[in-house]
């Protein structure tokens, strides 16, 4: 019963913001009209924002960038980290491993949000920059996971057998090692994505990498703060959507992992 409840909670909490973020921009009708800032009225269910735009319309428009930047950053991190980690683990020489892994330690020596702010100071602002920075911040952790998994898989008898059989490097690494670690990577995906979402939203809130009047949930929270006393929905609605999305995604991935480890146990028992 509670399990059912947790699934539903995860799905609803993820689904609502996800739906708004994806379908929202298509639901916006008409061009934005400017009214008085922080006013409310019958034609504005959630009132108006700091420059007098309709809050509901901004909510519909504002999810896409947050979601897209977080998704792209996560994907980019995987694309770079998987070959990097495998190369470090399966390289013939020890110094290659050191050479590949040590530079990443520098990134780990700094709090991620701090590094994000530092890089944003010198990089040209824009969504793509944010994608690159957030991907870079996720790189060390992910590469370590990949490397650890590749080390374990690379020492399996199956790999030894493939080598003896004269299989090529490509078939062994991509065909076997990379494929075998898919489960490990899938287990990491949930936290990786919520981590990226966290960084992207926090950066946008602090005004990094986004124009100050962008239609973006995190930017809305920041810019509409002065109106918190008169027109709280302009702040609360986007903040709640971000909260729901992060909580939902986390709950959902937790459930999926739990369900899978249960079915693994059953499989091992039979």
């Amino acid at each position: 019963m509670t399990r059912w409840l947790r699934w539903t909670a995860g799905i609803v909490l993820t689904g609502v913001p996800l739906l708004l973020a994806i379908a929202g921009p298509w639901l916006v009708d008409g061009s934005p009209t400017r009214k008085r800032a922080f006013s409310s009225g019958a034609d504005h269910p959630l009132g108006t924002d700091f420059v007098g735009r309709d809050v509901w319309q901004q909510v519909l428009l504002g999810g896409r960038t947050v979601l897209l930047v977080a998704l792209l950053a996560t994907a980019l991190a995987y694309v770079v980290a998987v070959p990097w980690g495998i190369a470090a683990a399966l390289g013939r020489r020890r110094f290659v491993d050191e050479l590949l892994m040590r530079p990443l330690d520098v990134v780990l020596a700094l709090p991620s949000l701090l590094l994000l702010l530092l890089l944003a100071t010198i990089a040209p602002s824009g969504s793509l920059t944010l994608v690159g920075i957030v991907a870079l911040l996720n790189l060390p952790g992910l590469t370590r996971i990949v490397r650890a998994a590749a080390l374990e898989i690379g020492s399996r008898p199956a790999v030894e057998a493939m080598r003896l059989q004269g299989e090529g490097w490509w078939r062994i690494t991509v065909g076997y090692v990379a494929r075998s670690m898919l489960r490990t990577l899938a287990a990491d995906l949930g936290t990786r994505f919520t981590g990226a979402l966290y960084l992207v939203a926090s950066a946008s809130f602090l005004g990094v990498g986004v124009p100050p009047d962008a239609s973006d949930w995190a930017v809305m929270v920041d810019r509409n703060r002065p109106g918190l006393f008169v027109q709280p929905w302009a702040v609360i609605a986007p903040a709640l959507l971000i909260v729901a999305l992060s909580v939902g995604v986390n709950l959902l991935f937790d459930r999926v992992l739990a369900a899978r480890s249960r079915s693994d146990l059953r499989g091992a028992a039979s």
């Binding site: 936290t191 919520t194 981590g195 979402l197 966290y198 939203a201 926090s202 809130f205 995190a218 929270v221 920041d222 703060r225 918190l228 709280p232 702040v235 609360i236 903040a239 709640l240 971000i242 909260v243 992060s246 909580v247 995604v249 986390n250 709950l251």
Partner: peptide, 16 residues
Amino acid sequence: GLHAIPEFALAIVLVA
């Protein structure tokens, strides 16, 4: 659930 919430979003909801 709580683990992943960005601080600013939680903060603003609590302030409100």
